[in-house]
Design a protein around this nucleic acid. Structure first.
Lengths: 133, 133
DNA sequence: GTACGTGCAAAGGTTTTGCATTACA
DNA sequence: TGTAATGCAAAACCTTTGCACGTAC
């Protein structure tokens, strides 16, 4: 509850429900996942509210927008530096909490000032491997 | 020209135009970029043909689909292992040809067999830095 | 000649937007 | 009470699909 106040957001019941759903969530949900989950408690919840809230959180830096899944955005409430491993078939994403030293030679970065990085590892999970193609 | 035959594709004029546009292209174009460029020479070109061709090339492994830009796919004809640096404002992408040793501890990868990786570096380019927010 | 590619238009999926209503602070 | 969020629907994007026609091999 103190956590919620710390956000500094105007706390509407919808936002609280979204924040609760995201807190500690390592499933990297899509907007639809969030909408579905929160709609159970708020049948009047709209996609607009979900997207508004996610965008607000992203701007505050308390939510990451992942571009790892083609066709839809995925969201990650864990803002600690970490990386991701995605199953190319089922799109399941797991966190990789491991530090890597990634230096980019100056002559490669051109005129772009580098502020961060993110590694996506990809592969096929057990379940997808054993099921037929 | 020999390159084109090597693709093994049925070589229609539209496909040749797309392949020519992609050959050596380091601009990481979107489907729309490709459509616009090729439409100049083929006014009847359709998006369906662009997407069909891109998907065919992707399946043959001669074209990479980048998911680095939220909201649209970007394509990269360079299939040599490399990484990308993207300007968060203008979405310009530059290649990073540098090798990194990225080992993932077994206990982190769970049941997913890792087959590859890709690093996205991000930052802000000179042009975007000097222009007002 | 035949299998496959093309072009058009319509449909599908995700995200954004306009605006009247509602509610937090 | 005033500012900001909500909900609904429509629109905006990007991508995919169905099908009749055309064409490379």
């Amino acid at each position: 509850m103190e956590k919620l106040k710390e956000t500094g957001l105007k706390l509407t019941p919808q936002r609280i429900a979204i924040l609760r759903y995201l807190d500690g969530n390592t499933g990297h949900p899509s907007a639809e996942d969030i909408y579905k989950a929160v709609s159970k408690k708020f049948p009047t919840m709209s996609f607009a509210t979900v997207y508004n809230t996610l965008e607000t959180l992203r701007q505050r830096g308390t939510l990451l927008e992942l571009t790892i899944d083609p066709g839809r955005k995925r969201f990650d409430p864990n803002t600690e530096p970490h990386h991701h491993l995605i199953c190319l078939r089922c799109k399941r994403i797991v966190d990789i909490h491991n530090a890597y030293a990634l230096k980019v030679p100056d002559e490669m970065r051109g005129d772009i000032e580098i502020t961060g990085n993110h590694i996506e590892f990809y592969g096929i999970c057990q379940k997808c491997r054993s099921s037929k193609d």
